[in-house]
């Protein structure tokens, strides 16, 4: 059984200007010890999915409209708030996108790590929590003599290390990393990614990596889910996504990457803009931008398994489906 099993998760933001359909029936599985990349453009619903798992959707305006999130045999959407607090940080922790703002500016770095330790280890003394916090800092490569400094005395990359130290402080079963390297410059990105990979290998933590960077995914993840308009477009192993790319959207994403091995003057971007989440197309959300668009795309395409473990939501692959039963998520 998968560690994390999201079934048909739907999250809307109900604002005065209309209903923002951020996540529309997502299915995702993450096995124990595995790392899954959730790839998509800005506004595709990646962060909303992550916050949904932790039950941190700001409400109002956000609202989970339906679906199930099974984690360790427990439906998180039906878990009472008190138990959710034990799960947040204790079993699932999150690394946020912007290290510049994710740390409390008025608390010492060591205290922010120790806070996590104190919350999830009942009966631990403050002194022991501090010791554990110092160990975590050393683990992410920050010398302990800087523990009593404040976040503004740290560089961006070091802040992100602190955030990762906080996330790992209580040995969680799963980490959700929401674009952990987006706000960092390239050399620091590589360091942080190396560190995440190294720590994960050592600690065996499962990882849900949210990113828009296909390079990051290739480096860190075992499996990939491509999300667009709040729906999973394609899901499979690295092999499936990178070598047997099926969905036109995924192909478009690869087409817009600069390549070193080919001499091209211009990149081929995907035409058009991401759909307005208050007014999604009736059929395939990618339909209006798809170069292979046909009339068949005006109805919602089914989520087909085209080879074992490789799922695609596209009309083009309707007849190649080896198994659609149970994976149907049409309304």
């Amino acid at each position: 059984m998968a560690l994390l099993d999201i079934k048909n998760l739907t999250i809307y933001y109900e604002t005065e200007d209309g209903v923002v359909k951020a996540v529309n029936g997502i299915d995702l599985q993450l096995e124990k010890g595995e790392s899954l990349g959730l790839v998509g453009e800005t506004g595709a619903g990646k962060t909303t999915t992550a916050l949904g798992i932790l039950g941190l959707i700001p409400n109002p305006p956000g609202k989970v409209k339906g679906g199930e999130i099974w984690f360790d045999g427990q439906d998180l959407l039906k878990t009472p708030e008190k138990e959710m607090r034990a799960i947040r940080g204790g079993k699932i922790s999150m690394v946020f996108q912007d290290p510049m703002t994710a740390l409390n500016p008025v608390h010492k770095v060591v205290d922010q790590i120790a806070e996590m330790v104190l919350l999830h280890n009942e009966g631990i003394s403050k002194a022991d929590a501090q010791v554990r916090a110092l160990q975590m800092l050393e683990m992410v490569g920050i010398p302990a003599d800087r523990a009593n400094e404040y976040p503004h005395q740290f560089s961006g990359g070091m802040k992100q290390r602190v955030i990762i130290a906080i996330a790992l402080a209580c040995n969680p079963e799963m980490i959700i990393a929401d674009e952990p390297t987006t706000a960092l410059d390239v050399t620091i990105q590589a360091q942080v990614l190396d560190m995440i990979r190294g720590l994960r290998e050592r600690l065996g933590t499962s990882l849900l990596m949210i990113t828009h960077d296909l390079g990051v995914v290739a480096e860190i993840c075992d499996k990939v889910a491509v999300i667009y308009g709040g729906e999973i477009m394609e899901y499979g192993t690295l092999e499936h996504i990178y070598n047997e790319t099926a969905h036109p959207y995924t192909k478009g994403l690869f087409g817009s990457l600069p390549r070193l091995d080919l001499d091209v003057d211009r990149l081929t971007p995907i035409q058009g803009l991401t759909p307005d989440p208050t007014n999604l197309p009736a059929g395939c959300p990618f339909g209006p931008r798809c170069p292979q668009h046909t009339e068949a795309c005006d109805v919602k395409p089914p989520y087909n398994e085209i080879s074992p473990g490789h799922f695609v939501r596209c009309m083009l692959f309707n007849d190649q489906a080896i198994n659609t039963a149970g994976k149907e998520s049409e309304e």
Binding site: L56, R85, G90, D98, N104, E115, L119
Partner: peptide, 14 residues
Amino acid sequence: RSDYIRTARAKGQT
């Protein structure tokens, strides 16, 4: 509304 408050929530703080 700031990020570090969200971080605190994600820690499981009351």
